[in-house]
Amino acid sequence: MGNLSWNVKSKYIHQLAEKGERQDKRDMYKYREIDIEPNYIDNALGSARVKIGETDIVAGLSFDVGDPYSDSPDKGVIITNNELGPIASPEFESGPPREDSIELSRVVDRGIRESGALDLKELCIEEREKVWLIFLDIHILDYNGNLFDASELALTTALKHGHLPKYEDEKIHHKEEGEKIPLKKLPIENTFAKIGDKIMLDPCLEEEKSLDARITFSTTEDGLCAVQKGGSGSFTQEEVMKHLEKSFDHAEELRKQIP
C-alpha cells in the first residue's frame, strides 16, 4: 500500500484518538490478545512463538563457542538479530537490514544486555579462551504493529525455557541439552504510541503507521534498564515519566503470562 493511502488512514486514526478511541475499540492502555508458546521449534534448544494481536514472531536461539571480547575475557557473548522478511509485510524486501530492522535488534538487545538478566559470566567456559556465544534471532512472520514488545517477549521466553547445548571434548553437541541458560530476571518491553496528543499502549499496525511518536521502556523485576524514543514527534518530560510508571505495571502483567 503506497504512501498516500496510509495518509488517508492516518487521518481516521487521529480523529478516533482525539476522542480517546481506538479502531479496535480497545482501552488506551490495554494489550491486544497475547499468545506465548515456548519451545516452538523442536530442533532448537531455545525458542518461542509469540503473538500480540496479529503480530506473529518466532525467536530462536543458536549457540557457538568462541573467543570472548578482549575487554571482557570472562563473559559470554550475545548477538541479537532480526529479519523483517518479505513474508511479514508487502513493504519488506529481502536484502540488507533496513534501519527499522537495525533499530529493533538494538533496542531488543539492550533490554536483555543492560538489565544484566543474563549472567554472562556463567557463559564463560575458559577465561580468555572460550566462551558461549548465544545468537538471539528474531523472525517476523506477520507484521501488524509493535514488534518491540513481541520480540522481547519471545526472546525472554526462549531464554527462560532454553538450554545450552552439551559441550564435551571441545565439541558442541547441538542436539543434546546441557545446562539451563542462566537467565536471572525477565526483561520486558512496553511500547506506547503518541497519536495527536493521546498516548496509548501497544499500537496495532494502523496506529503504528499513523503515530507521531513512540516510546519503549525496557524493565526487569529490578527496575528500568533502557528507553528508546522513536518517530518524528515529541514527548514532554511529564509524559515520559507518567508512562515509565505505567510500564512497570504492564511489564508485570506480561511477565505473568510467560509460561
Binding site: L224, V227, S234, Q237
Partner: peptide, 26 residues
C-alpha cells in the same frame, strides 16, 4: 529538545536508573 517548548524529540537510555534518577537525569 526543541528549546522553546522543551519537548523531547530524541531520547535514549541504557543503564541502571531508578525512576527518580531518570527524572533527575532528564
Amino acid at each position: 529538545i526543541k528549546p522553546k517548548s522543551g519537548d523531547i524529540v530524541l531520547l535514549q537510555m541504557d543503564g541502571d536508573l531508578t525512576p527518580e534518577e531518570f527524572d533527575e537525569t532528564l
